[in-house]
Design a protein around this nucleic acid. Structure first.
Lengths: 340, 340
DNA sequence: GTGAAAGCGCTAACAC
DNA sequence: GTGTTAGCGCTTTCAC
């Protein structure tokens, strides 16, 4: 009983299928690849043989011959702790993985070594994948922009590339969403509206600040009350504290993530400030935090699984040479609850 | 400016490297694969050529010739929503991905279609991967047990296979951890100790219940106060409510996850029951919930990133034919905070 | 519509 | 130590 690295009997090959079906290998290949010009009868008998043998095409051989890998890389920044901690990413990954499961593409996780970006670049360009999905992106992610010239790449969330760049992007319209969440506050009579913003080196953070600003400017209100957090509950707490410690009147806060809003509520509660009585709150993400805070939060719902599926779909279509819009916007909606 | 699926110039091949370095292809192959018997000089010049050309070995060709894919599948149950919602899994995936990034293995996500398990099985056995990591596992996951006979497979978290099964498993000792968390309650003078357990069709849930039970039995205490949750905060709330509604005295609760404990605290607070004054709490997972609840929770720390790395490492060693223990236990420790 | 033949880029005996 | 020679299992012209 020593260590036995299994795989006892060899997997059936296309050749075996051909023999059993009484046709040539080419024909089997055609059937497997849904070639249009094969007789119904032949298709049937080949499929029967495939079924009987439990044949599965060998990816490696297929890739080598066809020069397509049927593999898509999900590029993950090395700072994975932060990446995985964000439920947003988990949802997107899930959506992408689910969508790809319905195609014959495979999703591989590629950790982008920051120490050696060249390694990542080469892997991606070395014919190991048919395309890449890039989710996170700080302003210095120039390298991926470069990469997109030689490989189909779709960005999830707007990478901070110079405007007019011709990259493929799938994103919720953070500006618009934040704007409507802020306008909701205005429409309910609030006038001293602060924001707890997200990191200003992420497009999501920046765009949400911009939306808040636009809504305020349009209403002729002050845009002074701006504090930044890191999208986490503790970050929200600290930002809320800073906001209150300014000593200026505040009657509402647009918080750039529900997680931060949850932290903000903790501080508000501790200081005896009522929500929505004294301070109204709107936020983004319809997640556990939004649904289970006290009070429950009026928030922007972004269908995240959808985003994952969509971003993967766009990439697959791109790989297949189909016509795709450069920018795919995912609709959001405002959910009214008890924090306003 | 029509759709151009890029990859302009062909990637450099091993043959080109060989030509540039003035050696044969085999030699280049040897250098690339760290073969011991190559002259220092040759290694240097080959590496120089590789560097100069920006050569990256083609996975497909390599796999085809060597019959090893350098790919590891992470098998994910189709019910992905639940899977990804659990931060435990995110951490484990992260750890595994990080570890594999330091090897030349690649991690691919494989969604296990429940409607067609045969498809998953064939993919795994069809020579597309060198091994598989299986994380979730309900009692009916017999199929994977079967699979493990023909492919190196490592299970994370104890799959509910008949005892004495010879599968490779990496897990925290949930029984032991739960036992010590419960004993901690006993040692602090509590005698009416309830538990909010995890799902009883997951080994983690079952084992934690078992640990709680053992500690109680050893102390001659009652094991009646057992309610089940689903590892989420709302699940914890409901279970806590059921527990209190029994009308029996309770002076402590061992909660099988910090997320559930957070939900339980909400209920306790709403009913004006003080923690730890009237009811003490210990739990498992040293996550955001454990650290940021009020009061902060005394809990069992399980290094989850470590588990991910370890599970991947075990698999790689298995694939390489090294000797590995069937069972790898990850140590846990109890962190004392304010809930007892 | 189907078959024959020529590789895809690499590894792995086997010679030398 | 290094080169030579066969393939790995599949796709893909090109004939027929």
């Amino acid at each position: 009983m020593t260590t036995e690295t299994a795989t006892s009997h060899r997997a059936p090959t296309l050749e075996m299928v051909a023999a059993l079906a009484g046709v040539s290998r080419s024909t089997v290949s055609r059937v497997v690849n849904d070639s249009p010009r094969v007789t119904e009868d032949v298709i049937r008998s080949v499929n029967a043989a495939i079924e009987q043998l439990g044949y599965v095409p060998n990816r490696a051989a297929r890739s080598l011959a066809s020069r397509r890998t049927h593999t898509i890389a999900l590029v993950i920044p090395e700072n994975t702790a932060k990446f995985f901690a964000d439920p947003y990413f988990a949802s997107v990954i899930q959506g992408a993985a689910m969508f790809l499961a319905s195609t014959d593409y495979t999703l591989t996780l590629l950790i982008a070594s920051e120490a050696n970006p060249e390694k990542t670049r080469r892997y991606l360009l070395g014919g190991n994948v048919d395309g890449a999905l890039v989710l996170s992106h700080h302003s210095d992610d120039r390298s991926y922009a470069q990469l997109a010239r030689n490989l189909p790449v779709v960005f999830g969330g707007r990478p901070m590339i110079e405007t007019g760049s011709d990259h493929y992007i799938v994103d919720v319209d953070n500006v618009c969403a934040a704007q409507s969440a802020t306008r909701y506050l205005i429409d309910h009579g609030r006038t001293r509206i602060a924001t707890i913003a997200g990191p200003q080196d992420m497009s999501a953070g920046l765009d949400r600040s911009e939306g808040w600003r636009r809504a305020l400017l349009a209403a002729g209100l002050s845009t002074d009350l701006h504090e930044v957090g890191d999208f986490t509950p503790p970050g929200g707490e600290q930002a809320m504290r800073r906001l209150l410690d300014r000593g200026e009147p505040i009657d509402a806060v647009f918080v750039a993530s529900a997680q931060m809003a949850s932290g903000a509520l903790t501080v508000l509660r501790a200081r005896g400030i009522s929500v929505p009585g004294q301070v109204a709150i709107t936020t983004m993400d319809n997640d556990y935090y939004a649904q289970n805070s006290t009070p429950q939060l009026t928030t922007i719902d972004q269908p995240m699984g959808t985003q994952g599926a969509l971003i993967a779909e766009v990439l697959v279509r791109l790989i297949n040479g189909e016509q795709v819009d450069k920018l795919t916007i995912i609709p959001t909606s405002l959910i009214e609850r008890d924090s306003v």
